[in-house]
Simulated assay, not measured.
Amino acid sequence: MVRPSARRAAVVAGVLVLLAAGCSDPAASPAAAPAPTGGVTAAPVPPVAPSPVPAARAGLGGRPSPGAAPCRVFPADNVWHADVSRLPVHPRSAAMIAAIGGSATVHADFGSGRWEGAPIGIPVTVVPAGQRRVPVTFGYADESDPGPYPVPPDAAVEGGPNGTGDRHVIVWDRTACRAYELFDAHRSGAGWRAGSGAVFDLRSNRLRPAGRTSADAAGLSILAGLVRYDEVAAGHIDHALRVTVPRTRTGWTWPATHSASAATDPALPQLGPRLRLKRSVDLSRLPRQARIVAEAMQRHGLIVADHGSAWFVSGAPDPRWDNDALHALGGLRGSDFEVVDVTGLMVRAGSGATR
């Protein structure tokens, strides 16, 4: 989870990265500056365009305007969609997996029903074309995309209106094919205030500028990594999944653009590495919903996006989730995963496009 204290550390780490590495993408050069200086020593380490649960605006704006091109969450050649099932294992994989938690179990951090009075997961609010834009003020304005944003007054907030956690707000304009994402979002007058925010052109492979956060610590899109019910209902998830880990070290690994740690322990992963469920893990006995999620972990992997509990996989709430089936993912342990080397996929720094 992204806490304000972590954000302060992130700003410091981001400055160090800028000074030591000249904002270079860690995957661009294997000879990046060493971690103690804040250099980015990268561990070399969706798609179906279904309707997410439009929580606060159920049934409104779930489809693009007539004649509009379908809105895929990033192009087909984007790193989120990459098949990593045959990529090489990173040489420090064992140490990083142990640091995340080799004995810790996977947890689907989404589901049906409510937990502490709020839907379980990170909700997505779909808005119609022409949704009115409102002002948004940011605590970290220098790292955020300025408003106004098309966030409706009843947009769904992670944890509910009175939630005290990360309070993410994800707005998907499928007509314009853009995602507007906020961290620590609260209503404020005629608009909103938030800790940080980012706008993603979902038809572009462009990454955020090096050193900048988003609504996620890694500077990535949250929408891109959420497990959504309609994908599972269709039988296939064609993108990597968002996952949290307890600790990271300074710097970031492509496709991340931001650091939220000053730690220099080389055993720790940075933000951004790709984790893959080992091919040897038998998924045949998992219930259907859990199996489809686990298959995505084997084919597309997980991307370390933020700090939080080990192996917590993010998804959007939906009343159709079978919580008992999702709990079966708890049979997977950290030791069932490996860190993969994705450097061979990168086309150039600043882009999420892959070879």
Rank of each mutant, 00 (worst) to 15 (best):
I237G: 01
T343P: 03
A267K: 15
R291S: 01
V245F: 13
L326E: 00
I303N: 03
V245P: 01
D282H: 09
G331I: 04
P266M: 08
V340G: 02
H327V: 04
R242E: 09
T343D: 14
G235A: 07
V227Y: 01
R348G: 06
R276F: 13
L268D: 02
L283G: 01
R320M: 11
P319C: 11
E231T: 01
A263C: 10
P319R: 15
L326H: 04
V293T: 05
N323T: 09
S351Q: 13
P266I: 05
G225S: 09
L286T: 03
P246R: 12
V340L: 11
G308C: 12
P319H: 14
G331H: 12
A296G: 07
S221W: 06
F312Y: 15
R333F: 10
R274A: 08
P246F: 09
L226K: 05
V347Q: 13
V347W: 13
R274D: 00
G225A: 09
A260Y: 09
T253E: 11
A305S: 15
F337E: 01
L283E: 05
D341S: 11
G331A: 15
G235Q: 01
A290Y: 03
D318P: 09
D341G: 03
L268F: 05
R274H: 13
H307W: 05
H307T: 03
H300M: 10
S261T: 06
A316W: 02
E338P: 07
A349K: 10
D322C: 11
G315Q: 08
A290G: 07
A316L: 06
W311F: 12
V313H: 09
P266K: 10
E338H: 12
R249Q: 11
G251R: 06
V245K: 08
D230S: 07
R320K: 15
W252C: 01
V227W: 03
T264Y: 07
T257L: 13
G301A: 12
D238Q: 14
D265L: 12
G350R: 10
D336P: 07
T264E: 12
I292V: 15
Q289H: 08
H300C: 08
R288V: 05
A263T: 05
F312P: 00
V342W: 06
D336S: 07
A233R: 11
L271K: 00
L332M: 09
A233P: 02
A325H: 12
G225P: 02
A267M: 08
A260I: 06
P255F: 06
V243G: 02
R242N: 15
R299D: 03
R242P: 00
L268H: 00
K278G: 12
S309E: 14
A290P: 05
R348Y: 12
V340P: 05
F337N: 02
G301W: 01
H236R: 14
R285Q: 15
G235W: 00
L332Q: 04
